[in-house]
Protein backbone atom coordinates (compact mmCIF):
# COMPACT_ATOMS: atom_id res chain seq x y z
CA UNK A 1 0.00 0.00 0.00
CA UNK A 2 2.83 2.29 0.91
CA UNK A 3 4.35 1.61 -2.47
CA UNK A 4 1.49 2.96 -4.55
CA UNK A 5 1.82 6.31 -2.81
CA UNK A 6 5.50 6.43 -3.62
CA UNK A 7 4.76 5.71 -7.27
CA UNK A 8 2.02 8.29 -7.51
CA UNK A 9 4.02 10.82 -5.58
CA UNK A 10 7.07 10.46 -7.80
CA UNK A 11 4.92 10.72 -10.90
CA UNK A 12 3.21 13.83 -9.62
CA UNK A 13 6.44 15.53 -8.64
CA UNK A 14 8.11 14.69 -11.95
CA UNK A 15 5.32 15.98 -14.12
CA UNK A 16 5.22 19.17 -12.11
CA UNK A 17 8.94 19.62 -12.46
CA UNK A 18 8.74 19.08 -16.22
CA UNK A 19 5.98 21.64 -16.50
CA UNK A 20 7.71 24.03 -14.15
CA UNK A 21 10.83 23.83 -16.29
CA UNK A 22 8.93 25.64 -19.01
CA UNK A 23 8.78 28.66 -16.76
CA UNK A 24 12.21 28.18 -15.24
CA UNK A 25 14.00 27.86 -18.55
CA UNK A 26 12.37 30.92 -20.02
CA UNK A 27 13.08 33.04 -16.96
CA UNK A 28 16.68 31.88 -16.65
CA UNK A 29 17.37 32.32 -20.36
CA UNK A 30 15.89 35.78 -20.14
CA UNK A 31 18.02 36.62 -17.13
CA UNK A 32 21.16 35.59 -18.93
CA UNK A 33 20.12 37.50 -22.03
CA UNK A 34 19.48 40.83 -20.25
CA UNK A 35 15.73 40.70 -20.64
CA UNK A 36 12.71 39.86 -18.53
CA UNK A 37 11.03 36.72 -19.77
CA UNK A 38 7.45 35.85 -18.81
CA UNK A 39 6.53 37.92 -15.80
CA UNK A 40 2.90 38.83 -16.27
CA UNK A 41 0.81 35.71 -15.81
CA UNK A 42 0.54 35.12 -12.09
CA UNK A 43 3.17 35.87 -9.45
CA UNK A 44 6.59 36.01 -11.16
CA UNK A 45 4.94 34.70 -14.29
CA UNK A 46 4.55 31.16 -12.98
CA UNK A 47 1.09 30.76 -14.50
CA UNK A 48 2.73 30.81 -17.93
CA UNK A 49 2.97 27.06 -17.40
CA UNK A 50 -0.79 26.79 -17.15
CA UNK A 51 -1.24 29.13 -20.09
CA UNK A 52 1.13 27.17 -22.31
CA UNK A 53 -0.36 23.82 -21.36
CA UNK A 54 -3.92 25.01 -21.94
CA UNK A 55 -2.89 26.55 -25.24
CA UNK A 56 -1.35 23.30 -26.40
CA UNK A 57 -4.40 21.32 -25.35
CA UNK A 58 -6.76 23.58 -27.20
CA UNK A 59 -4.83 23.56 -30.46
CA UNK A 60 -6.31 21.73 -33.40
CA UNK A 61 -5.18 18.15 -33.35
CA UNK A 62 -4.06 17.93 -36.93
CA UNK A 63 -2.37 14.90 -38.36
CA UNK A 64 -0.92 15.53 -41.80
CA UNK A 65 -2.80 13.43 -44.33
CA UNK A 66 0.44 12.22 -45.86
CA UNK A 67 1.78 11.05 -42.52
CA UNK A 68 1.56 7.56 -41.11
CA UNK A 69 -1.17 8.01 -38.53
CA UNK A 70 -0.31 5.45 -35.85
CA UNK A 71 3.41 5.98 -35.89
CA UNK A 72 2.83 9.74 -35.86
CA UNK A 73 0.75 9.43 -32.71
CA UNK A 74 2.96 6.97 -30.83
CA UNK A 75 6.28 8.71 -31.46
CA UNK A 76 5.84 11.44 -28.82
CA UNK A 77 4.43 8.94 -26.37
CA UNK A 78 7.53 6.78 -26.57
CA UNK A 79 9.89 9.48 -25.38
CA UNK A 80 7.76 10.39 -22.38
CA UNK A 81 7.16 6.77 -21.47
CA UNK A 82 10.81 5.77 -21.66
CA UNK A 83 12.05 8.73 -19.63
CA UNK A 84 9.40 8.27 -16.98
CA UNK A 85 10.33 4.60 -16.74
CA UNK A 86 13.96 5.61 -16.14
CA UNK A 87 12.94 7.46 -13.00
CA UNK A 88 11.89 4.14 -11.49
CA UNK A 89 15.39 3.42 -10.26
CA UNK A 90 16.40 6.82 -8.89
CA UNK A 91 16.67 7.06 -5.11
CA UNK A 92 15.09 10.30 -3.96
CA UNK A 93 15.80 9.48 -0.36
CA UNK A 94 16.69 6.30 1.57
CA UNK A 95 13.07 5.23 1.64
CA UNK A 96 11.64 6.82 -1.50
CA UNK A 97 12.56 4.76 -4.51
CA UNK A 98 10.04 3.21 -6.84
CA UNK A 99 11.96 0.05 -7.58
CA UNK A 100 15.48 -0.66 -6.43
CA UNK A 101 16.46 -2.95 -9.27
CA UNK A 102 19.54 -5.13 -9.17
CA UNK A 103 20.46 -3.89 -12.61
CA UNK A 104 19.58 -0.26 -11.96
CA UNK A 105 22.16 1.43 -14.16
CA UNK A 106 21.58 -0.99 -17.00
CA UNK A 107 17.87 -0.28 -16.81
CA UNK A 108 18.61 3.42 -17.13
CA UNK A 109 20.73 2.76 -20.22
CA UNK A 110 18.05 0.51 -21.72
CA UNK A 111 15.40 3.17 -21.34
CA UNK A 112 17.56 5.86 -22.88
CA UNK A 113 18.19 3.62 -25.90
CA UNK A 114 14.45 3.42 -26.35
CA UNK A 115 14.29 7.19 -26.49
CA UNK A 116 15.97 7.09 -29.89
CA UNK A 117 12.82 5.59 -31.38
CA UNK A 118 10.71 8.63 -30.74
CA UNK A 119 13.03 10.75 -32.86
CA UNK A 120 13.38 8.28 -35.67
CA UNK A 121 9.69 7.49 -35.85
CA UNK A 122 8.66 11.11 -35.40
CA UNK A 123 10.84 12.24 -38.25
CA UNK A 124 9.76 9.43 -40.54
CA UNK A 125 6.09 9.64 -39.79
CA UNK A 126 6.02 13.27 -40.81
CA UNK A 127 6.89 12.20 -44.37
CA UNK A 128 8.92 15.35 -44.83
CA UNK A 129 12.48 15.68 -46.08
CA UNK A 130 13.44 18.15 -43.38
CA UNK A 131 12.10 16.00 -40.57
CA UNK A 132 13.74 12.88 -41.92
CA UNK A 133 17.14 14.54 -42.17
CA UNK A 134 16.84 15.84 -38.62
CA UNK A 135 15.63 12.52 -37.33
CA UNK A 136 18.40 10.42 -38.80
CA UNK A 137 21.08 12.78 -37.60
CA UNK A 138 19.57 12.88 -34.14
CA UNK A 139 19.37 9.13 -33.97
CA UNK A 140 23.02 8.63 -34.91
CA UNK A 141 24.06 11.24 -32.40
CA UNK A 142 22.06 9.62 -29.63
CA UNK A 143 23.25 6.10 -30.31
CA UNK A 144 26.87 7.19 -30.37
CA UNK A 145 26.67 9.13 -27.14
CA UNK A 146 24.79 6.35 -25.38
CA UNK A 147 27.95 4.28 -25.65
CA UNK A 148 30.01 6.91 -23.90
CA UNK A 149 27.37 7.44 -21.27
CA UNK A 150 27.26 3.76 -20.41
CA UNK A 151 31.01 3.34 -20.36
CA UNK A 152 31.54 6.39 -18.16
CA UNK A 153 29.26 4.91 -15.53
CA UNK A 154 31.13 1.62 -15.52
CA UNK A 155 33.96 3.15 -13.56
CA UNK A 156 31.60 3.87 -10.70
CA UNK A 157 30.19 0.35 -10.95
CA UNK A 158 33.70 -0.97 -10.59
CA UNK A 159 34.31 1.10 -7.49
CA UNK A 160 31.00 0.16 -5.92
CA UNK A 161 30.71 -3.44 -7.09
CA UNK A 162 27.01 -3.17 -7.78
CA UNK A 163 24.57 -1.83 -10.35
CA UNK A 164 22.05 -0.85 -7.70
CA UNK A 165 21.72 2.89 -7.30
CA UNK A 166 21.03 2.77 -3.59
CA UNK A 167 24.33 0.90 -3.15
CA UNK A 168 26.10 3.57 -5.17
CA UNK A 169 24.68 6.36 -3.03
CA UNK A 170 25.63 4.51 0.14
CA UNK A 171 29.17 4.00 -1.19
CA UNK A 172 29.58 7.78 -1.34
CA UNK A 173 29.16 8.27 2.41
CA UNK A 174 32.82 9.19 2.93
CA UNK A 175 33.68 10.95 -0.29
CA UNK A 176 31.61 11.72 -3.34
CA UNK A 177 32.51 10.05 -6.61
CA UNK A 178 33.13 13.42 -8.23
CA UNK A 179 36.53 13.40 -6.58
CA UNK A 180 37.29 9.83 -7.53
CA UNK A 181 35.98 9.91 -11.09
CA UNK A 182 36.21 13.49 -12.40
CA UNK A 183 36.81 12.46 -16.02
CA UNK A 184 33.80 10.19 -15.91
CA UNK A 185 31.68 13.08 -14.62
CA UNK A 186 32.63 15.33 -17.51
CA UNK A 187 32.06 12.62 -20.09
CA UNK A 188 28.77 11.55 -18.55
CA UNK A 189 27.48 15.10 -18.51
CA UNK A 190 28.48 15.79 -22.09
CA UNK A 191 26.93 12.51 -23.20
CA UNK A 192 23.83 13.35 -21.20
CA UNK A 193 23.45 16.70 -22.97
CA UNK A 194 23.79 14.89 -26.29
CA UNK A 195 21.26 12.25 -25.26
CA UNK A 196 18.60 14.80 -24.43
CA UNK A 197 19.57 16.70 -27.61
CA UNK A 198 19.85 20.04 -25.85
CA UNK A 199 22.07 22.87 -26.98
CA UNK A 200 24.94 22.63 -27.83
CA UNK A 201 23.96 19.25 -29.25
CA UNK A 202 20.48 20.08 -30.47
CA UNK A 203 21.20 19.39 -34.12
CA UNK A 204 18.03 17.27 -34.56
CA UNK A 205 15.94 20.27 -33.72
CA UNK A 206 18.27 23.05 -34.75
CA UNK A 207 15.98 26.00 -35.01
CA UNK A 208 17.83 28.14 -37.42
CA UNK A 209 18.95 25.34 -39.67
CA UNK A 210 16.07 22.98 -40.18
CA UNK A 211 13.24 24.91 -38.55
CA UNK A 212 12.21 22.34 -35.98
CA UNK A 213 13.82 19.24 -37.34
CA UNK A 214 12.11 16.00 -36.55
CA UNK A 215 9.17 17.58 -34.82
CA UNK A 216 8.42 20.27 -37.41
CA UNK A 217 5.12 18.68 -38.43
CA UNK A 218 3.86 18.32 -34.88
CA UNK A 219 1.52 20.77 -33.18
CA UNK A 220 -0.70 20.83 -30.17
CA UNK A 221 -0.29 18.37 -27.38
CA UNK A 222 1.91 15.98 -29.39
CA UNK A 223 4.43 18.80 -29.70
CA UNK A 224 3.90 19.39 -26.01
CA UNK A 225 4.76 15.75 -25.35
CA UNK A 226 8.07 16.11 -27.13
CA UNK A 227 8.84 19.08 -24.97
CA UNK A 228 7.79 17.37 -21.77
CA UNK A 229 9.96 14.48 -22.81
CA UNK A 230 12.91 16.79 -23.35
CA UNK A 231 12.48 18.49 -19.98
CA UNK A 232 12.04 15.16 -18.24
CA UNK A 233 15.23 14.05 -19.93
CA UNK A 234 17.03 17.10 -18.58
CA UNK A 235 15.72 16.31 -15.10
CA UNK A 236 16.75 12.69 -15.48
CA UNK A 237 20.32 13.44 -16.44
CA UNK A 238 20.58 16.02 -13.66
CA UNK A 239 19.19 13.52 -11.18
CA UNK A 240 21.57 10.80 -12.37
CA UNK A 241 24.54 13.13 -12.13
CA UNK A 242 23.54 14.14 -8.63
CA UNK A 243 23.05 10.50 -7.62
CA UNK A 244 26.11 8.99 -9.23
CA UNK A 245 28.68 11.67 -8.65
CA UNK A 246 27.46 14.02 -5.99
CA UNK A 247 26.07 11.74 -3.33
CA UNK A 248 22.36 11.76 -4.17
CA UNK A 249 20.45 12.36 -0.98
CA UNK A 250 23.55 12.52 1.22
CA UNK A 251 24.12 15.77 3.04
CA UNK A 252 24.31 17.42 6.46
CA UNK A 253 21.37 16.72 8.70
CA UNK A 254 19.79 20.16 8.85
CA UNK A 255 17.83 19.39 5.69
CA UNK A 256 15.92 16.17 4.96
CA UNK A 257 17.59 13.86 2.41
CA UNK A 258 15.08 14.50 -0.38
CA UNK A 259 15.72 18.23 -0.06
CA UNK A 260 19.43 17.66 -0.70
CA UNK A 261 18.57 15.53 -3.68
CA UNK A 262 16.38 18.23 -5.17
CA UNK A 263 18.92 20.96 -4.52
CA UNK A 264 21.62 19.05 -6.34
CA UNK A 265 19.29 18.15 -9.20
CA UNK A 266 18.21 21.73 -9.64
CA UNK A 267 21.78 22.92 -9.70
CA UNK A 268 22.41 20.70 -12.70
CA UNK A 269 19.16 21.71 -14.37
CA UNK A 270 20.30 25.33 -14.11
CA UNK A 271 23.60 24.31 -15.65
CA UNK A 272 21.73 22.77 -18.58
CA UNK A 273 19.89 26.04 -19.12
CA UNK A 274 23.14 28.02 -18.86
CA UNK A 275 24.65 25.83 -21.55
CA UNK A 276 21.73 26.62 -23.79
CA UNK A 277 22.15 30.34 -23.27
CA UNK A 278 25.84 30.50 -23.90
CA UNK A 279 27.28 28.04 -26.38
CA UNK A 280 27.06 27.87 -30.18
CA UNK A 281 26.28 24.67 -31.94
CA UNK A 282 28.95 22.47 -33.50
CA UNK A 283 28.34 20.98 -36.90
CA UNK A 284 27.08 17.43 -36.99
CA UNK A 285 30.23 15.80 -38.28
CA UNK A 286 32.35 17.78 -35.80
CA UNK A 287 30.12 16.46 -33.03
CA UNK A 288 30.49 12.84 -34.09
CA UNK A 289 34.21 13.19 -34.67
CA UNK A 290 34.77 14.62 -31.23
CA UNK A 291 32.72 11.83 -29.75
CA UNK A 292 34.49 8.94 -31.37
CA UNK A 293 37.98 10.38 -31.48
CA UNK A 294 38.18 12.14 -28.14
CA UNK A 295 35.51 10.90 -25.77
CA UNK A 296 35.76 7.20 -26.50
CA UNK A 297 39.51 6.90 -25.87
CA UNK A 298 39.12 9.03 -22.75
CA UNK A 299 36.35 6.91 -21.32
CA UNK A 300 38.19 3.67 -22.06
CA UNK A 301 41.32 5.10 -20.47
CA UNK A 302 39.30 6.09 -17.44
CA UNK A 303 37.94 2.57 -17.19
CA UNK A 304 41.37 1.02 -17.38
CA UNK A 305 42.89 3.38 -14.85
CA UNK A 306 39.99 2.87 -12.45
CA UNK A 307 40.29 -0.88 -12.79
CA UNK A 308 44.03 -0.77 -12.23
CA UNK A 309 43.70 1.42 -9.14
CA UNK A 310 40.87 -0.72 -7.77
CA UNK A 311 42.97 -3.88 -8.16
CA UNK A 312 45.96 -2.23 -6.59
CA UNK A 313 43.97 -1.05 -3.59
CA UNK A 314 42.43 -4.44 -3.08
CA UNK A 315 45.59 -6.40 -3.50
Amino acid sequence: MQHIWIVLGVLFVLLNIAAGLIWLERRMLAMWQDRLGPNRAGPLGILIVLADTLKLFFKEDWIPPFADKWVFITAPAIVVASVLMSFVIIPFSPSIIVSDLNVGILFFLAMSSLGVYSIVLGGWASNNKYSLLGALRGASQMIAYEVFMGLSLMGIVMLTGSFKLSDIVNAQKDVWFVFKQPVALVIFFIAGVAETHRLPFDIPEAESELIAGFHSEYSGMKFGMFFIGEYLGVTLISAMTATMFFGGWLGPAFLPPWAWFFIKTFAFILFFILLRASLPRPRYDQLMETGWKVLLPLVLLNLMVTGAIALWIRG
Binding site: L106, L109, A110, S113, L114, V116, Y117, V120, A139, I143, E146, G150
Partner: peptide
Protein backbone atom coordinates in the same frame (compact mmCIF):
# COMPACT_ATOMS: atom_id res chain seq x y z
CA UNK B 1 21.09 -6.37 -22.19
CA UNK B 2 18.60 -7.83 -24.66
CA UNK B 3 16.73 -4.55 -24.47
CA UNK B 4 19.80 -2.36 -24.73
CA UNK B 5 21.42 -4.18 -27.60
CA UNK B 6 18.60 -5.70 -29.62
CA UNK B 7 15.64 -3.43 -29.09
CA UNK B 8 17.70 -0.32 -28.52
CA UNK B 9 20.42 -0.41 -31.13
CA UNK B 10 20.03 -3.14 -33.71
CA UNK B 11 16.39 -2.39 -34.39
CA UNK B 12 17.19 1.29 -34.85
Amino acid sequence: VNLIVYAGAIMV
